[in-house]
């Protein structure tokens, strides 16, 4: 943290008075240092991004070379009129709605609790964070077994306490919540660690001073911890929304977008249009529409951060 706070002033000082030994002529060595990164960046990020934008205006096909016929906004209007596009976009948004609040609130609550516990923090980090480093395929295999009708641990546990359990992944209305629970287990640790780091930035003296004044634990959390955590909270929220919007793996492995397309995400729609139906021009247009959604979320975050900075 100290590093980032001192970073800006040093840079500015550097800009104002150039160091005497090499006042200019650093363009060439700089180009040398930048080339490896920029070359790969242009070839594999910026280039494809522009190529994708161009393709989205053509009837490009996977099985034909070249761009094929110009389509204008045809791909976009087709996507916007397609029920499949809207339902897959809705599935992605529904998944985001189901996962974001618990992933933020539960991670925050657990981090608040862990911040008060003095011993054994490594154990909590281990328990919550280990799932996060696992490949999606591993997570999916384990949870498909937990959800197996008739044999799964979850159904067995529910039966034992007298509840009947639905066919988690097989019932169209339960499939998405089931995927959300799996995702909660898988990625909670990341937010937990972010919050824990944010909490460590809160000066301990504030707590000590307030308990001298007779503040109880709830008051401390309400009037010290949460306000001090504002920036971390917006950061976690935006990272979480974007991560949830990008969902693909869980559905692809656990439900293949089913049952009856009830869990097909927008990225799987891109995958299906491009790599199953070979319509990569159309798939590019859908990608661009999805990119606009992500961009909108980032813009909202940027506006919130700006406002927070003004308040400070």
């Amino acid at each position: 943290m100290t590093t980032s706070q001192t970073a800006l002033p040093t840079r500015q000082a550097m800009d104002d008075d150039p160091p005497p030994p090499r006042p200019r002529g650093q363009g060439l060595p700089a180009a040398g240092f930048l080339t490896p990164f920029l070359l790969l960046y242009v070839l594999f990020i910026a280039g494809p991004a522009l190529y994708g934008l161009v393709m989205s205006f053509f009837d490009t096909s996977m099985v034909k070379p070249g761009l094929s016929g110009f389509a204008g906004f045809g791909n976009y209007t087709e996507a916007l009129q397609s029920a499949d596009f809207w339902s897959s976009l809705w599935h992605t948004i529904w998944f985001t709605i189901l996962t974001t609040p618990p992933l933020i609130v539960l991670a925050l609550v657990l981090a608040l609790l862990a911040d008060r516990v003095k011993h054994g923090r490594w154990f909590f980090r281990l328990a919550f964070f280990v799932p996060y480093v696992l490949p999606s395929a591993v997570v999916a295999l384990i949870w498909m077994w937990l959800y197996t009708p008739g044999l799964g641990l979850i159904e067995t546990a529910l039966t034992k306490i007298g509840l009947t359990s639905p066919n988690w992944l097989g019932d169209p209305s339960w499939a998405m919540p089931s995927l959300a629970v799996t995702t909660l287990w898988w990625t909670l640790g990341f937010n937990f660690v972010l919050f824990l780091a944010g909490l460590q930035e809160v000066p301990r003296e504030l707590y000590e001073a307030s308990s001298m004044d007779g503040a109880g634990p709830w008051q401390q959390i309400r009037s010290i911890t949460l306000p001090m955590l504002g920036r971390t909270l917006t950061l976690v929220a935006v990272l979480q929304v974007i991560a949830s919007l990008k969902v693909f793996d869980q559905m692809y492995i656990m439900t293949s977008g089913g049952p009856n397309f009830a869990t097909r995400s927008v990225l799987q729609y891109v995958y299906d249009s491009g790599f199953t139906n070979f319509r990569i021009g159309y798939a590019s247009a859908v990608s661009m529409l999805f990119f606009l959604v992500v961009l909108a979320v980032s813009a909202v975050w940027f506006a919130i951060v700006r406002r927070q900075e003004k308040e400070v």
């Binding site: 960046y41 990020i45 494809p48 190529y51 990008k246 990225l267 491009g274 590019s284 661009m288």
Partner: peptide
């Protein structure tokens, strides 16, 4: 300019690029 161009890359989700990258 270079710094901002690099930063803009954070905004682009890699999944958006799969189709053109595959073609490439």
């Amino acid at each position: 300019v270079v710094f901002w161009v690099v930063l803009a890359g954070i905004m682009v989700p890699s999944q958006v690029l799969i189709v053109p990258q595959f073609r490439e």
